[in-house]
Simulated scan of single mutants.
Amino acid sequence: MSGLPTGPSVAVLDYGSGNVRSAVRALERAGARVSLTADPDTVMNADGLVVPGVGAFGAVMHSLKNVGALRWIGRRIAGGRPVLGICVGHQVLFERGVEHGVETEGMGEWPGVVEALPAPVLPHMGWNSVRPAEDSVLFRGLEDERFYFVHSYAVQNWTFDQTIASMAPPKVTWSHHGADFVAAVENGPLSATQFHPEKSGDAGMRLLQNWLGSL
């Protein structure tokens, strides 16, 4: 049938997180063949996996564990299969999160603690500029664009020990709200954005297309 996406297959992980339909629609508009799924075979065999997330760090980690998704995500990363985390799906890739005095262990793919931004107004909601990493794939052609954020917590300190790395160091993109914070990371098959590309208009669409083009 004409008009159907013919691009790469993308599984959007369905583990109980809210607001996944907007991600599905945005990926379809960007040209992907999208499945909203918690089926292990579909998750593992798709060209790309998107891990969305809204709400609290601890609740998202709990839900991911409940459906067995932490194992699937880890296996995809270990096998060089692309994964894109969005918002709290970005945050849980770090070592841990601290919210309201409660500390929760994350997936530990990257160093860093997700903690409250020291800003007079929270949440950080709305459009903001970013400082893309050099040679970024996600932000190619988007260096001067703004993206849509909705969050109160973020990673504000990044330390990467290159001596134990087996590949090039991750590409880290920054933004600012009260303090500098990590807005996106690109690390081999694993990428993530603190902002919502699916809510970021044409810039977000082009970023998703950049990601799809890398699959």
Rank of each mutant, 00 (worst) to 15 (best):
R75K: 13
R21V: 13
Y153S: 03
Y15V: 04
F147H: 09
W110D: 00
Q91D: 02
S214Q: 13
R140Q: 15
D47W: 08
S17E: 06
S2V: 14
R29G: 09
L93A: 08
S152L: 06
W72Q: 12
R131F: 11
P120M: 07
V88F: 02
P132L: 01
V10T: 02
D39K: 00
L190C: 02
G85H: 00
L27D: 05
G108E: 08
P52D: 03
V20D: 07
D144G: 02
S166N: 14
L142H: 09
G18W: 06
V92L: 03
F139S: 08
A32P: 01
F195G: 03
N66P: 02
F147S: 09
V12D: 02
A46Y: 06
W158P: 01
Q162M: 12
L142S: 12
A23L: 07
G188S: 04
F181L: 12
A11E: 00
H177P: 01
V92K: 00
L142C: 07
V102E: 14
F181I: 10
F94H: 03
T159F: 14
D41L: 13
F149I: 07
A154S: 13
A30H: 05
M205L: 15
L215K: 11
K65P: 06
M205R: 15
V182Y: 05
D14F: 07
L64Y: 05
H151T: 01
M167T: 15
G18K: 05
R76T: 01
E198R: 08
R75M: 13
Q209A: 10
S2L: 15
M1A: 15
V150Y: 08
R21F: 15
V155D: 07
V88L: 14
M1W: 10
P5M: 10
G108W: 04
A59N: 13
R81A: 13
T104H: 00
W127R: 06
M44N: 11
R131N: 13
H124L: 10
L117E: 05
L13R: 10
A192I: 08
P169C: 09
L122C: 02
L190A: 12
N157T: 15
K171T: 03
M61C: 12
T6W: 02
T6A: 15
E103M: 08
P40W: 10
V88S: 09
C87P: 00
P120E: 08
L13C: 07
V67A: 08
V185R: 05
S22A: 12
Q156F: 04
D180E: 14
H176T: 14
G55K: 03
V182G: 01
G68N: 01
V24E: 11
G58F: 02
